[in-house]
Amino acid sequence: MTDDTAPHPRRLRVLAAMSGGVDSAVAAARAAEAGHDVTGVHLALSANPQSFRTGARGCCTLEDSRDARRAADVIGIPFYVWDLAERFRADVVEDFVAEYEAGRTPNPCLRCNEKIKFAALLDKALALGFDAVCTGHYATVVRRADGSRELHRASDLAKDQSYVLGVLDERQLAHAMFPLGDSRATKEEVRAEAQRRGLAVARKPDSHDICFIADGDTQGFLAGRLGRAEGDIVDEDGRKLGTHEGAYGFTVGQRKGLRLGRPAPDGKPRYVLDISPVDNRVTVGPADALDVSALTAVRPRWCGTPPAGAGSYTAQLRAHGAETPVTAELVDGELRVDFHRPVRGVAPGQAVVLYDGSRVVGSATIATTRRAERVES
């Protein structure tokens, strides 16, 4: 196998997605330095970019657009702004709202990679004659001897972003370039590289917030879209403990913001165990009630050939979560996952990403979970 981020035997036409941050700028610079014919593009994802928070990660502010243009000028590559605001609204923002309304917890960054950066953007790039799309993600594409591609974790596991790329199929991987993925440099060293290259974004702060929520208030954003609707907060026996202003404002495993006013009888914290959008009810209970032994996931996407039969893998359930050993099997188009030991706080709507060593096998959206048996104290 060969590392697909290494210099290619031929000069490629590369479209570098430049968010206005340091990672995408350095990635574009490395691709140009490797001898490729690079063009920078900034994705305008808001119909009103001034309404989005300054410094938001990725493509949402006028400041970001200007920073990306300045970086392209320093690198010496052509630069364009492409308007994908309508596609972003439909495929990411509206999906985000609909998922919360249905009592699920979506990952908008994962959806953006699937629908925008490696669907809408890649399709347009290929139609214009580009060979690859380059981004600043920390992940690695490996080209096998037979020409097929695999997605692997970044060399530096502390910066690895393969979880949010687990939705990419083999065709998309064949046209993906991640120049930072094989780098063991720390973030400060990447910033130092940007400084050496004369890129003004070298000291621009990172943001991990949702880019389309202006003030970072997710619950307020959803309330503005869905309206406030008072409902009950109940315990596992159905006893009313308090009220809320919309079940969509909660996620499984949440502890803060319940505003119940009095502790549980045992004095321990309560957590959100279940969200029922049908009757606008939120069920809370003790931490051990969050333990899950298995899940079913839908809409699987495979980074290569789908697995055949049951197999042993590791699974990651959050963008910055730890791996856990599992047995997984594809049954009638659904992914069935059994955890070797219970995991806590798994929310429908999240993605489960399977790994075979460092290789990303694929991703699916969690639909249902099975609670682990609780040991009576």
Rank of each mutant, 00 (worst) to 15 (best):
T324Q: 03
A308R: 13
T296H: 03
G304L: 09
R344C: 05
R344V: 06
R318P: 02
T305A: 15
Q350R: 14
C303Q: 08
A347S: 15
P306Q: 08
Y313H: 07
R341L: 12
V331R: 14
L330G: 00
T327C: 03
Q316V: 08
T327R: 15
E329A: 12
T327Q: 12
V343C: 07
P307I: 15
T324L: 02
V298A: 15
A319C: 10
G304I: 05
F339S: 01
T314D: 01
A322W: 09
R318V: 08
R336A: 15
T324W: 01
V298G: 10
R301V: 15
G321V: 05
P306A: 12
R341D: 10
V343P: 01
V346K: 08
P342C: 13
E334D: 14
G349I: 02
P348N: 02
A308H: 14
R344K: 14
T314Q: 06
Q350P: 00
T296L: 12
Y313G: 01
V352N: 03
S312I: 05
A310T: 11
V331I: 12
A322Y: 07
P300M: 09
P307H: 11
A328V: 05
A310D: 08
G309P: 07
A297N: 02
G349H: 07
A347L: 04
T327P: 05
V346C: 00
P300T: 13
G309N: 06
G349A: 03
P300L: 10
A310Q: 12
Q316S: 11
G333E: 11
T305G: 10
T296F: 11
W302R: 04
G321P: 08
T314S: 04
P348F: 06
R299P: 09
T296A: 08
W302T: 07
T305W: 06
E323W: 05
P342A: 10
L335A: 06
T324S: 04
A322P: 05
Y313R: 03
R336N: 10
V346G: 01
E329N: 04
G309M: 09
G349W: 01
R318S: 14
G345W: 04
R336E: 15
G309T: 06
G349L: 06
G311L: 05
V326S: 03
G309K: 00
Y313K: 01
P342W: 15
C303N: 15
A297P: 04
A328Y: 04
G304D: 06
E329P: 06
